[in-house]
Computed example of a mutant assay.
Amino acid sequence: MVRLPLTSAELERGERLGALLRRARGERSMLQTALDARVSPETLRKIESGRVATPAFPTIAAIADVLGLSLDAVWAEINQPGRDDAPSKSRERLAS
């Protein structure tokens, strides 16, 4: 199966998702959050860092449930451009 490259919009949405999950996790450990959601800590780390920009729906649903986030809230947050805590790498390149 050939996987198409992600668009810049998908990459930015993945970055927003990762930032949202990090904020929602707060002081809770990544390990405990991953175990409670029944995903690997490596998967959660990749999602939070934006390396997995399009994670599977059941994965996000499980993590959101553990963090007390509604899927509606997650969807609304990640689909609003300009809501990042930090500029994306592509925006940094454009600014320099």
Rank of each mutant, 00 (worst) to 15 (best):
86 A>I: 12
40 S>Q: 02
77 E>K: 10
30 M>T: 15
7 T>Y: 04
6 L>W: 06
53 A>G: 04
93 R>Y: 04
35 L>M: 11
38 R>I: 02
24 A>W: 02
55 P>M: 06
22 R>N: 07
54 T>I: 09
37 A>Q: 03
33 T>R: 01
76 A>C: 03
64 A>D: 06
48 E>N: 07
54 T>Q: 11
44 L>R: 02
26 G>K: 15
95 A>R: 13
4 L>H: 10
4 L>W: 10
27 E>G: 10
89 K>N: 10
79 N>I: 10
22 R>W: 03
56 A>M: 09
31 L>I: 13
85 D>A: 15
28 R>Q: 09
5 P>M: 02
46 K>W: 02
88 S>Y: 05
44 L>K: 02
8 S>F: 05
20 L>Q: 05
35 L>D: 07
95 A>F: 01
87 P>V: 12
8 S>N: 07
96 S>T: 13
33 T>H: 00
29 S>N: 08
82 G>C: 04
93 R>K: 10
15 E>P: 00
48 E>F: 03
30 M>N: 13
39 V>R: 13
91 R>S: 14
29 S>M: 05
35 L>W: 12
93 R>L: 11
63 I>F: 00
10 E>N: 04
65 D>T: 09
27 E>R: 11
9 A>N: 10
29 S>C: 06
15 E>W: 08
5 P>H: 01
4 L>R: 14
73 A>F: 08
7 T>S: 15
80 Q>W: 05
47 I>R: 03
14 G>C: 00
17 L>S: 09
92 E>V: 08
81 P>A: 01
67 L>N: 04
14 G>M: 00
73 A>V: 09
10 E>V: 08
38 R>S: 12
74 V>M: 03
74 V>H: 03
16 R>C: 01
58 P>D: 09
75 W>N: 13
73 A>K: 11
9 A>L: 13
23 R>Y: 04
72 D>I: 10
3 R>P: 05
46 K>F: 05
25 R>V: 09
10 E>D: 09
13 R>S: 08
90 S>E: 13
43 T>N: 11
91 R>P: 03
11 L>A: 05
1 M>A: 14
13 R>M: 12
23 R>H: 11
11 L>I: 12
82 G>W: 02
91 R>H: 14
87 P>I: 07
13 R>V: 06
59 T>R: 07
90 S>N: 06
45 R>G: 08
37 A>S: 11
31 L>E: 15
26 G>A: 15
43 T>R: 11
